[in-house]
Design a protein around this nucleic acid. Structure first.
Lengths: 182, 182
DNA sequence: CCACGATACGGAACAATGTTCCGTTTGCCA
DNA sequence: TGGCAAACGGAACATTGTTCCGTATCGTGG
């Protein structure tokens, strides 16, 4: 049976309010603020999203999806698999650095599971292709690489002297270094 | 004028208690737990260490100091400045990965300031030497590199599939990549 | 059109945590 | 030993995520 009309309305209002709050105050925006913005009580949030992480995941689902789907496409449109991997990671970084607080939130239980489930297979495919092409000789777990990149994005966009994109660039470039030099 | 005897005693008890709590529960150990361990009230903690970050900094001061002092020595004992840098970063990583929660805490205001103040100059010296030797061609801010390494250490030592040391290895190796390939 | 049961809602209440405040206790010196 | 500055303890406050339950609302069967 379909949800009640008010429930559907509230869910959408919550997603909109959360998105707005995340833009304005970062992903750490307090649950109460989001509830107030949506004009509902906190209980309503928790009925729709059992955990703050679930709400965050729901808000960003579309963008994560888009990122995941871009993987195979990049593999086709790039001559070198390593270049495709670099381009894909770039997309991931673009996504992360524009969401204040998301990279740090990525360590929360539920959110972490969601990102891993959706993105690790894609990363694995790109990494595997680069390995097969001989562009990478080290044994790297897809999940390890993604977590590394996610971690490097922590604190990006505070315009102090930290350039997450540059650091990710080094990391990806380092993957290519010949085994002998490591 | 020297501190009162009980104050001195309590400060030492607090440092010991905090160190023990950090080993057992990580750097996130609640202030109340530390106070209880030391047999003092929370007010006493705040009189000695205005902020939790100050307490953390105090507990690890010796190790940070040792790390900082190792920099110039490594520069002398290594043929290549890049190798010295790698060795020094290794020391830093060793320090971080053995302290549950420290890398994430590194973003707290006071703690961050302390680490930056003490370690950035050392990192800058190693980085400068590698640059002068032509082993690094990119322009990298010492603070950026340190933050990157610190970030990569987040979540290390939970023995899930994340190998912070490996990621840091890639990052440092990536510094060396010729400018044309970036 | 209305009553009624299932569904959903609101927000008070709880737990955990960092931090502040202030009445009380204690060390030290004259 | 008396007194006071220094230090103490822990209750109290603010901020969070989360849970709970009495109340309001929706939608359907009559």
């Amino acid at each position: 049976m379909p949800k009640r009309a008010d429930a559907q309305r509230n869910e959408k209002a919550l997603l909109d309010a959360a998105a707005a709050a995340f833009v304005e105050s970062g992903v750490d925006a307090p649950v109460r603020d989001i509830a107030a913005r949506a004009g509902v009580g906190v209980g309503t949030i928790y009925r729709h999203f059992p955990t703050r992480s679930d709400l965050i995941a729901a808000v960003f689902r579309h963008q994560v999806e888009a990122c995941a789907e871009a993987g195979p496409a990049l593999l086709k449109s790039n001559d070198s698999p390593h270049a495709a991997l670099a381009a894909w990671i770039d997309l991931f970084v673009d996504f992360l650095v524009t969401k204040h607080g998301l990279p740090e939130a990525l360590h929360e239980q539920g959110l972490h599971a969601y990102f891993v489930e959706r993105l690790v297979p894609v990363c694995g495919q790109l990494l595997g292709a680069a390995w097969n092409a001989g562009e990478i000789t080290a044994t790297v777990e897809p999940i390890g690489l993604l977590r590394g990149v996610g971690n490097l994005c922590i604190g990006a966009g505070r315009d102090d002297g930290y350039d997450a994109r540059q650091m990710v660039g080094f990391l990806i470039e380092g993957l290519r270094a010949p085994a002998g030099s490591r």
